[in-house]
Amino acid sequence: MIRAALAWLLLAATAWWAFQPAAPSPRADGVPVTPATQLAEQRTGPIRYAYRRLCEELTHPPRSCDRWHLVGVDGRRWWMPEKSGSPGGLALSPDGLMIARGKETVILQRVDGSVTPTEIPMGELAFSLDGRFLAVRGTADVVVLEIATGRRRSFALPEHAALHGWTSTSVVLTVVSRSDSTPGHLATAEIMELDATSGRTSRRPVAVNLAARLTLSPDGRTLATVPSRGPTLVDLATAEATRTLPFPSAREVIRWLDGTRLLVRADLPPGGFGSLRSYHVLDLTTGAPRRLDVDDTDADDGSLVIGAAE
């Protein structure tokens, strides 16, 4: 009898824990934030960032791990409802007003709560800089969706093509392959640009060491990369570095915001409370970084996605 009662209490406690709302996370200064609510059929402002929670069995309710968590520019928090299992992939538009997500097919959701399912198979996602288009890279093709009209075009891709974002008009991919014409069969790399309107493609060579984390400027002429000393701009035509900005803690250029600003991830000094990384808008005109209010303390490694940077 006692064993049965204990088993029933354990089962009840487990069920109660599983259905609790997501616990609020502390900000970097240790002050608790407002608890999250479900983002569904409600109007909100731009989304600053999204993340999947780093789950620790003893400190987080299991259901809070099976969803995307969103943080608005104004600091409010939401979570995306999921039916079961892994939350799938997610991308935010540059203005933070639209979400692309899904597991098997892509779903578009605006911050006013409206949802538009598509029949596009889920893959890597990237919004265009102006938010007009969404690129979805599948196993053998890339689909370009014009969001306002629903028009979509599919383009076959070569093997080993990786999606890297957009210029002002084109989807940017890289193709890395073994070369039969070079000594030792070394790898070669190309940038592939696919014009979203005309469908025309262009390909040009790029150094293999730059292809892995390629961030191409809106005009398609300059690469931004991060060697040891800070963000460095490389002229694509000459492959020569034209400028290095004094920001030694920078570790990654996430994307170009426009022709004069970069979104950059940097490391914070060890020993502080909260996040170990910081996120900045780096002005190429002045060289000055502006830190964004982003805290990835609770985020699973590599899951954080940044939307609005204004």
Rank of each mutant, 00 (worst) to 15 (best):
R53L: 15
R53D: 04
R53G: 08
L54E: 15
C55F: 15
C55E: 11
C55K: 11
E57C: 13
H60C: 07
H60P: 00
H60R: 10
P61A: 14
P62L: 10
P62I: 05
P62W: 10
R63S: 15
S64Q: 04
C65E: 02
C65D: 01
R67D: 04
R67M: 14
W68G: 00
H69L: 02
L70I: 08
L70E: 02
V71Q: 12
G72R: 15
G72T: 15
V73F: 02
V73P: 00
D74S: 13
D74R: 12
G75C: 08
G75T: 13
G75I: 12
G75W: 12
R76D: 12
R77A: 12
W78A: 08
W78V: 01
W79T: 05
W79Y: 15
M80Y: 02
M80W: 10
K83Q: 12
K83A: 15
S84R: 07
G85Q: 05
G85A: 08
P87D: 07
P87G: 09
G89R: 15
L90V: 10
L90A: 01
A91N: 08
A91S: 07
L92F: 05
S93C: 10
S93Q: 01
P94R: 08
P94H: 07
G96K: 10
L97Y: 10
M98T: 14
M98A: 09
M98S: 09
A100N: 07
R101V: 01
G102M: 00
K103T: 14
K103M: 13
K103F: 11
K103N: 13
T105C: 00
T105I: 04
V106A: 04
V106Y: 02
Q109W: 03
Q109M: 14
R110A: 07
R110W: 14
V111Q: 06
D112V: 00
G113S: 05
G113A: 03
G113K: 06
S114I: 05
S114K: 11
S114G: 01
V115T: 15
T116L: 07
P117E: 08
P117N: 08
T118G: 02
E119T: 15
E119S: 13
I120Y: 01
I120H: 01
I120W: 06
P121N: 05
P121G: 02
M122N: 09
M122D: 10
G123E: 09
E124Y: 12
A126Q: 01
F127R: 05
F127N: 00
S128A: 11
